[in-house]
Design a protein around this nucleic acid. Structure first.
Length: 269
DNA sequence: TAGGCCATCTGGTCCT
DNA sequence: AGGACCAGATGGCCTA
């Protein structure tokens, strides 16, 4: 796949944390940074507000490449945080499960089938928030309570899985939109990822339209004659243009006798 | 320390 | 009934 990296090369080996703001993903900020790469212009100083090279997380290499591997990502700050260390929610207390595995697809620390819900309930944190109207705070009869908690834990596990899938999809989206995929650069936030992807799509659509107009213009300047691809020019890297020329060639063939001299010579499509 | 971002829990709603 | 989806609430981590 084509690389669309925007790197701040002036920083040398100095890790850079690009500020991710709404301005970053505005269409007007887009620039073609090189012949082979698209990126965005972050203003005069790309690292404004984001030169925290002393960040412990960064120095510890806590922002590696992001793959759809839940187990690895549990080490990344702000992402895939192990259940034992994040919001306690209704059932989880950090001191209860010191060796809770992170979400890995094979084990689910919130799965009632693994350990049972009663264990979690028995060590509920006294600081767990009391949800108004939460039936689990009212502690009904034991049997029904246990079954209800099991259902609740199943629902929680599904929801957690769903959110992980959503995050995996966001990771895949980050992988194909142009921004600096570097361990020293902070990962795009969710909202920034969506906005950047939207603007990237718009930019690609504009580029495509511009190319179509250019081809039409070139065709016009050729006096109505089909565009002749210069010898040695390979259209393999331009499938859209090749297809367009093929269509033009087909239209020419339909409207009149074939003209061998006008056949694209460089196209191998 | 405030604000941003995130993961998780939870109850409600809709759909199959 | 069960699952997917959604939004609100909560608390942890990180950075300026």
């Amino acid at each position: 796949m084509k690389s669309f990296e925007y790197e701040s090369s002036s920083e040398g080996d100095e890790p850079t944390v690009l500020p991710i703001s709404r301005a970053v993903v505005e269409p007007s900020q887009w620039l073609k940074t090189s012949a082979s790469g698209w990126g965005w212009q972050t203003g005069a100083n790309p690292s404004v507000g984001g030169t925290s090279t002393s960040s412990s997380a960064i120095n510890q290499g806590s922002y590696p490449s992001f793959h759809s591997n839940h187990g690895e990502e549990s080490q990344i700050p702000g992402r895939r945080t192990p259940l034992g260390t994040v919001g306690l929610g209704g059932f989880y207390f950090q001191g209860c499960s010191p060796n809770l595995p992170s979400h890995s697809g094979q084990s689910d620390e919130n799965n009632p089938d693994q350990g049972g819900p009663s264990q979690n309930i028995s060590c509920r944190s006294p600081q767990s928030r009391a949800v108004p109207g939460n039936s689990q705070n009212t502690l009904p009869t034991k049997g029904k309570n246990r079954q209800g908690k099991t259902v609740r834990l199943n629902i929680n596990a599904r929801e957690r899985r769903r959110m992980h899938d959503l995050n995996d999809a966001l990771d895949e989206l980050r992988a194909v939109i142009p921004y600096a995929h570097s361990p020293s650069v902070r990962k795009l936030s969710k909202i920034a990822t969506l906005l950047l992807a939207k603007n990237y799509i718009l930019m690609q659509a504009n580029a495509l339209e511009e190319m179509r107009r250019l081809i039409a213009y070139l065709q016009g300047t050729a006096g109505g004659a089909p565009i002749v691809v210069p010898p040695g020019f390979d259209l393999q890297g331009f499938p859209a243009a090749a297809k367009f020329l093929q269509q033009q060639q087909a239209m020419q063939n339909e409207s009149g006798p074939p003209n061998d001299s006008a056949r694209p010579s460089g196209s191998n499509m």
